[in-house]
Design a protein around this nucleic acid. Sequence first.
DNA 1: TGCTGACATGTCACCATTGACATGTCGCGG
DNA 2: CCGCGACATGTCAATGGTGACATGTCAGCA
Lengths: 180, 180
Amino acid sequence: MSLTHALLGLLAVRPSSGYELTKSFEGDLGRYAWQAGHTSIYPELNRLAERGLVEVTHEGARGSRTYAVTPEGRAELREWLFAPPRAGRVRNEQVLRMFLISALDPKDALILLRGIAERTREGADELRRIRVENDDVPFTSPEGFGLLAAEFGVRQYDAVHSWAVWAIERLEKELARAQT
Amino acid sequence: MSLTHALLGLLAVRPSSGYELTKSFEGDLGRYAWQAGHTSIYPELNRLAERGLVEVTHEGARGSRTYAVTPEGRAELREWLFAPPRAGRVRNEQVLRMFLISALDPKDALILLRGIAERTREGADELRRIRVENDDVPFTSPEGFGLLAAEFGVRQYDAVHSWAVWAIERLEKELARAQT
DNA sequence: TGCTGACATGTCACCATTGACATGTCGCGG
DNA sequence: CCGCGACATGTCAATGGTGACATGTCAGCA
């Protein structure tokens, strides 16, 4: 299960409570890579603790428990990351929607593609603005994770934008040719 | 459920049997957007037929049934594609692995990043080769789907490659600074 | 003719995930 | 000091997907 390793990875960067981990999944992590709700995180943390891959290092207010990875957990994470990059199972509704646009008639397809092109341009611009503000964060710090995500996000938006623009041009050309 | 609309979309482009649909999910569709096995496809086709969104248009050898979308199915697909692009749930183990690299020590991280950079470069090159060979396929044909996927795939690979190269440079710079 | 591999569809038990529901704490502003 | 919103964790029924198992057909080849 990938959730196992997502949690190990987050805790390897910085010890956190289940609540904080839940917040992480609502940010860049959940947006680009893997999403999970608190209802799967808490039971998984208990399972990880039973297996000795994480441990409770601190109990705070309101019953909060701070977890940290054990050396065994770190080894497990490392092993997983170095394991042959098996064909990962992909589930991405956005990309599915993009592809299925070709099943519509060209007029509808153009409307949707133009919407995608605009939204991805805005998304990329917004991320670029955030990026310049956080340029001095070191890679290996807890905040380095957000840096990685932002850099990935910008390239992701640009890729989809470029794709949409290409598709629009191609469709328009074909429509023009069909009219003559 | 997204599988519903994935099937409607594929059948809207070209009537197919469950077996052929299964093959589609093993290609670009399953790689970039949404994956499904035959064990979920066949029951879903039956459900779609019951709801009148698809119908059997032909029965062939070995009990094969060819399905096609009905006007109702086409309307449902169109409605879904035009619906507000809700926050799609993302599940991508590859991207998760990329992000979790920052949880490793820099030496290990560099090894993995270099592997990613190399594999994505190869992937992009390979797709570019396929692309020039299929440049004359019309967008709206059944093969247009593959064209869309190839163009998306190239940009996707390039994005990840560029990200990996950026991460490598950044990490190397930080390591050099730490040594002095 | 018999074998093999691709074609073709199906069931079912198991597992992970989700959404609804539940419960209680703490800090802060009015 | 009261109430609200964020903090913090949890259960559980329903859902959706996976992998194992099952069955049979047809074409081509030896």
